[in-house]
């Protein structure tokens, strides 16, 4: 069953088009990843799905309810973990969770039990009565994910869940997140601009400048790039590159003192190459395509680096528009 259905969704902030006619569907109890650089329209799309923003055009349905006109039903069906922490730092972990349980009108008899469960699930039972102020970034995120599940939502939104976490907490959080669909019968909708992290998704949509430019499983997307890339260092790169082109009929070019060769099955090609030009080879390495390569191929840009600054400009423009027009 499709738990989320989005059709030709558009959101404009004045002259800026943040989301430019996107359509996609999300299967129930899967992990869906929304991938793209800063300012691509990920948070705007999430805000529309979460009923916090009204779309300019198009429709979005979640759990069979219209995200614009049936906001109360949609809100009951979703849990959200925002980019920035939305915990009250001056309350304890337990108090934050209880606040949530009351806010979502969890049955009186169930409240305490669910809060305890959430604390155990976030592995924070021993810190339950400590103020949030004293928690690390990773602990806060785990608590927020657990809080988002207290009212048993159908969809859990995670907006850049690992932003600002150290690598250790990040991989812990991912283990924690990948278990959710099975354990809690919930669909995960997440955004990220870390390509490596999107590998855990069942399905990915790559978004750039408000449009979806590709979607599919991580494997399907990687096929867009072609195969693996072999990097060779030899005593005479120019000559070796020419030889490889001649002998194997594949692309081989030279860059930064290395020859790089795109082939379909890298591991099978390496022995052949060594056999032919073996004596001149200094080093060999092979790279499987990453989602980063997919993005590079599709847009001609790196997802991070210099491109991020353009995204930040868009973000700032949207923010200042909202300040002027819908205060709050």
């Amino acid at each position: 069953m499709q738990i989320i259905r989005v059709d030709s969704l558009v959101k404009k902030f004045g002259a800026i088009t943040a989301v430019d006619g996107i359509s996609f569907e999300v299967e129930e109890n899967t992990i869906f990843g929304f991938l793209g650089p800063n300012g691509a329209g990920k948070t705007t799309t999430i805000s529309i799905l979460c009923t916090l923003l009204a779309p300019t055009a198009g429709t979005a349905y979640l759990n069979g309810h219209n995200c614009h006109s049936e906001s109360a039903e949609v809100r009951r069906s979703i849990g959200i973990v925002f980019q920035d922490s939305s915990l009250d730092k001056d309350l304890t972990a337990r108090e934050n969770l209880l606040f949530h349980a009351y806010l979502y009108d969890v049955d009186k008899a169930e409240r305490k039990k669910r809060v305890d469960e959430a604390l155990a699930f976030a592995e924070l039972s021993d810190r339950a009565d400590n103020l949030i102020k004293t928690f690390s970034g990773g602990m806060k995120r785990r608590l927020e994910v657990a809080r988002g599940l207290i009212h048993r939502p159908k969809v859990l939104f995670l907006d850049e869940p690992t932003l600002g976490l150290d690598p250790q907490s990040r991989s812990n959080l991912w283990e924690f997140i990948t278990d959710l669909p099975k354990k809690h019968n919930v669909t995960i909708f997440m955004t990220t601009h870390y390509m490596e992290e999107a590998e855990v998704c069942d399905k990915i949509a790559i978004i750039d400048k408000g449009r979806i430019i590709a979607s599919g499983t991580p494997q399907e997307l990687k096929k867009i790039v072609g195969g693996d890339v072999i990097y060779l260092k030899t005593t005479d790169n120019k000559k070796a590159a020419g030889q490889i082109r001649e002998l194997f009929g594949v692309e081989a070019s030279e860059k930064d003192g290395e020859i790089f060769i795109s082939v379909l099955k890298g591991e099978a090609c390496i022995p052949d190459i060594i056999r032919e030009i073996g004596e001149r080879v200094l080093s060999v390495r092979m790279q499987r395509p990453t989602l980063n390569d997919v993005f590079l191929k599709l847009t001609g840009k790196e997802i991070r680096e210099e491109y991020a600054s353009a995204g930040d400009d868009i973000k700032e423009a949207v923010r200042s528009y909202r300040r002027r027009h819908d205060r709050g």
Binding site: C50, T51, L52, A72, R75, R76, I78, I80, F82, D84, S85, S86, L87, D88, K89, F99, H100, L103, Y104, D105, G328
Partner: peptide, 13 residues
Amino acid sequence: KEFGFMKEILVAP
């Protein structure tokens, strides 16, 4: 609003 807690309240049903 500044510290983000308002969002928790605003997305609640």
